[in-house]
């Protein structure tokens, strides 16, 4: 019942942003937001902040645009279809280096969840074992880390680009698959694969940590609405904290949104995803602040991209990172 109410409320808010902002007693500033992908617990903090009214409390009338495979956050940002979007750091740096005026407000995911899995039976335990093997990879920026990995270890690996890496992997079409720790890795478990049947390679373990989801806007938007944007960041942060403290309630908010958008949803899987997001966002370790973009991470990603000839020069970190966490304190 509770989730039902949450779903109705979420839809209501999604459909009615204009009318709300237009009402005189509600002096809410409109803002549109596009996450990286379809609704799932990867974005639980944002959905929770919306559902719990944290955005409205911060004077934001948020238009939550549902993400999906056909909605490129970069394009939406540049085309002005979304004020705020989630981008991977590697993607954002490329955009910035190619001349797009995108700036980072906050780095949500600190640690790369991208990983490679193979069946134990294929005997791939070290980078060298991957020589001549076939790997299924998602298109575009997902391939930056694995390609850098192959280059680093001078591997000749056959790559197959696929929108869904798992079916190809499960049916024996490839030896390895690129998966996300918080998502497809656990999906394999729900497909009857036991963890001990798999070998895993995490990129951060090979000095290829690419922080992933970050909150981005165009520089122009930043200069006009810095305060509003940072209120958005802080409300989102509040949403994440709330989601980690109340995981069941967070799932009760996220799952109805998934069902409404015909996204296959099962609770165990979403719970796994939320728990992993906490691991990835967790500020506790290394003295990193939640939502802070570290310059070392920025430099590492830039260097890899530069070496890969994906960028000609590294954007200016001072300009690129707006650091809403610090800004808000000022």
């Amino acid at each position: 019942m509770r989730s039902g109410i949450a779903a109705v409320l979420a839809i209501f808010i999604l459909l009615m942003p204009m009318s709300l902002s237009a009402s005189p007693e509600n002096q809410l500033e409109p803002l549109s937001f596009l996450p990286l992908w379809r609704p799932q617990a990867q974005f639980a903090g944002f959905y929770v902040a919306l559902e719990k009214g944290f955005y409205r409390q911060n004077g934001i009338d948020l238009q939550f645009i549902q993400g999906g495979p056909n909605r490129s956050p970069g394009n939406y940002l540049i085309d002005g279809k979304a004020d705020v979007a989630l981008l991977w750091l590697s993607n954002a740096i490329q955009l910035a280096a190619s001349g797009a005026d995108v700036v980072n407000l906050a780095q949500v995911v600190q640690r790369s969840a991208l990983m490679m899995v193979s069946r134990k039976s294929s005997g791939i335990v070290s980078p060298a074992d991957m020589e001549g093997k076939k790997i299924a990879m998602w298109p575009a920026d997902f391939q930056i880390q694995p390609r850098a990995f192959f280059a680093k270890y001078h591997l000749n690996v056959q790559t197959v680009t696929a929108a869904n890496t798992l079916n190809l992997f499960l049916r024996g079409g490839v030896d390895l698959a690129l998966v996300m720790w918080y998502n497809e890795f656990h999906t394999l478990m729900t497909y009857g694969i036991d963890p001990d049947e798999l070998n895993t390679i995490f990129f951060p373990d090979y000095d290829l940590n690419f922080p992933e989801d970050g909150i981005y806007v165009l520089g122009d938007t930043w200069f006009k609405k810095a305060d509003l944007l940072c209120r958005f960041v802080m409300a989102s942060l509040e949403g994440w904290y709330y989601a980690f403290e109340h995981p069941d309630e967070a799932l009760d908010i996220v799952i109805p949104v998934m069902e409404k958008n015909f996204v296959p949803a099962n609770r165990i899987h979403q719970r796994w995803m939320l728990d992993r997001m906490q691991n990835l966002i967790d500020p506790g370790r290394n003295g990193t602040k939640t939502f802070e973009l570290k310059e070392s991470d920025f430099q590492r990603v830039s260097t890899v991209l530069h070496n890969d000839n994906l960028i000609m020069f590294s954007p200016n970190f001072e300009y690129f990172s707006k650091g809403c966490v610090h800004h808000a304190k000022k």
Binding site: A162, N167, R171, G172, G173
Partner: peptide, 12 residues
């Protein structure tokens, strides 16, 4: 080209 209905029979 990236979708299962295409890539799976292709690779298999």
């Amino acid at each position: 080209f990236y979708y299962d209905w295409y890539v799976v029979p292709k690779e298999l």
